[in-house]
Simulated scan of single mutants.
Amino acid sequence: MTFALFQQTPAAGPPGWTQFIFIGGMGLMFYFLLIRPQSKARKEMEARLSKLKAGDEVVLSSGLYATIDRVEDKHIWVKLGSSVVKARRTAVAALATEPETEKN
């Protein structure tokens, strides 16, 4: 009695280099879907922050609307009502005059 049914030849799989192509493709997708858009948005925000000047109306990251009184190297002085407050440049979330994009 032979056990020919239980003797199977090993199945031939895809060549090993196809795994490297798959991993490389995943890396490219990761770059174009995550890394590139974030770096582009960061560069745009840095450009906006470098162009701030006195008199600009801004929205701070806390949600407060303020007017810039004066600009220093890393800080800005903003008018909130009748008081003037020192804040970091990075606290500016957007210019108040920019159209806001709606997120649904």
Score class of each variant (00 low, 15 high):
2 T>F: 11
2 T>D: 10
3 F>H: 11
3 F>T: 00
3 F>G: 10
4 A>S: 15
5 L>W: 14
10 P>Q: 07
12 A>E: 11
13 G>C: 02
15 P>A: 06
16 G>F: 04
18 T>C: 07
22 F>L: 15
23 I>E: 06
23 I>T: 11
23 I>D: 07
24 G>I: 04
24 G>C: 04
26 M>I: 04
28 L>I: 08
28 L>E: 03
32 F>V: 04
35 I>V: 14
36 R>P: 04
37 P>L: 14
42 R>A: 13
42 R>Y: 05
44 E>K: 15
44 E>C: 07
46 E>D: 13
47 A>C: 08
48 R>P: 00
49 L>C: 10
50 S>T: 15
51 K>A: 15
51 K>P: 00
52 L>E: 02
56 D>W: 03
57 E>L: 13
58 V>T: 05
58 V>Y: 00
59 V>M: 12
60 L>I: 01
61 S>V: 12
62 S>D: 10
62 S>I: 09
67 T>H: 03
68 I>L: 11
68 I>K: 01
70 R>A: 01
70 R>G: 04
71 V>L: 00
72 E>N: 09
72 E>P: 01
75 H>F: 02
76 I>N: 00
77 W>M: 02
78 V>P: 02
78 V>Q: 01
78 V>E: 00
80 L>R: 08
80 L>F: 01
81 G>I: 08
82 S>N: 15
82 S>W: 10
84 V>K: 14
84 V>T: 13
84 V>C: 06
87 A>D: 04
88 R>F: 07
89 R>M: 12
89 R>D: 07
90 T>F: 13
91 A>E: 05
91 A>Y: 06
93 A>E: 14
93 A>K: 04
94 A>R: 06
94 A>L: 11
94 A>P: 05
95 L>R: 05
97 T>I: 14
100 E>Y: 01
103 K>S: 08
